[in-house]
Simulated scan of single mutants.
Amino acid sequence: MLNIDVLCVGKIKERYLRDAIDEYSKRLSRYCKLRIIEVADEKTPDNASAAQEEQIKAKEGERLAKHIHDGTYVIALAIEGKMLSSPALAEKLNALALQGSSHIQLIIGGSLGIDTSILKRADMLLSLSPMTFPHQLMRVILLEQVYRAFKINAHEPYHK
């Protein structure tokens, strides 16, 4: 069984988002061992300078790095990453499993994005859309797409 970690910056405060995350986590339990690992986010002052923003991303990046394990396949969500269709994501996850990658870590950064040190460590940069979404909502979207990928790979119907 595939082990999937979702490493995220910040906690989800909105109940409706937590409920959606819980629902997809429950659905995914049939297909993989899922862990959601949250690290603390940094407060971003209003009108933060570019240097301050880089410092914030670096601190969040250090927290994320503590949870990245050697031997895992790391996929970082980044707007500049590769966009895949749902079937292509399913193919990617299937190929990783067939190649013996039993542990995949998906990384969602904070409101400023992901530190370059984490992006460089990643085996793949993935963009789910050219649009910008709140990072809290991105967690739900990512889990839904991973669930959809497992349904596709299992040749099971999924409502479109």
Rank of each mutant, 00 (worst) to 15 (best):
M1L: 10
M1N: 11
N3W: 02
N3T: 00
D5S: 15
V6D: 08
C8K: 03
V9G: 08
G10L: 13
G10K: 03
K11A: 11
E14P: 00
R15H: 11
R15V: 09
Y16S: 14
I21L: 13
I21W: 02
D22R: 11
S29D: 08
S29N: 13
R30D: 02
C32R: 01
C32H: 02
K33G: 10
K33Q: 15
K33R: 15
R35C: 11
I36T: 11
I36S: 10
I36Y: 13
E38P: 01
V39W: 05
V39R: 02
V39D: 00
E42T: 01
T44Y: 07
T44C: 15
D46R: 14
A48Q: 04
S49Y: 01
S49W: 04
Q52M: 14
E54D: 14
I56M: 07
K57N: 05
K59A: 15
G61M: 05
E62M: 12
L64G: 05
A65G: 03
K66V: 05
D70N: 12
T72I: 01
Y73N: 01
Y73T: 03
A76P: 01
L77N: 00
A78Q: 06
I79T: 04
E80F: 02
K82N: 05
K82C: 04
K82F: 05
M83D: 00
S85M: 05
S85T: 14
S86Y: 01
P87Y: 08
P87C: 12
L89I: 02
A90V: 05
L93T: 04
L93E: 09
L93R: 04
L93G: 10
N94R: 13
N94Y: 12
N94Q: 12
L98T: 06
L98P: 00
Q99G: 12
G100F: 12
S101C: 13
H103F: 09
L106V: 08
L106P: 04
I107Y: 07
I107G: 07
I107K: 01
I108V: 15
G109H: 06
G109M: 08
G110W: 05
L112A: 13
D115H: 12
S117E: 12
S117R: 11
S117D: 14
I118H: 00
I118T: 07
I118N: 01
L119D: 03
K120I: 01
K120V: 02
R121G: 10
D123K: 09
D123H: 15
D123V: 06
M124R: 07
M124V: 00
L126D: 03
L128V: 04
T132R: 09
T132I: 14
T132F: 11
T132M: 11
F133C: 07
P134M: 13
H135E: 01
L137I: 12
R139F: 12
I141T: 05
I141P: 00
I141Y: 05
E144S: 13
V146Q: 04
V146W: 04
R148V: 04
A149R: 02
K151Q: 14
I152H: 10
A154V: 00
H155D: 14
P157G: 15
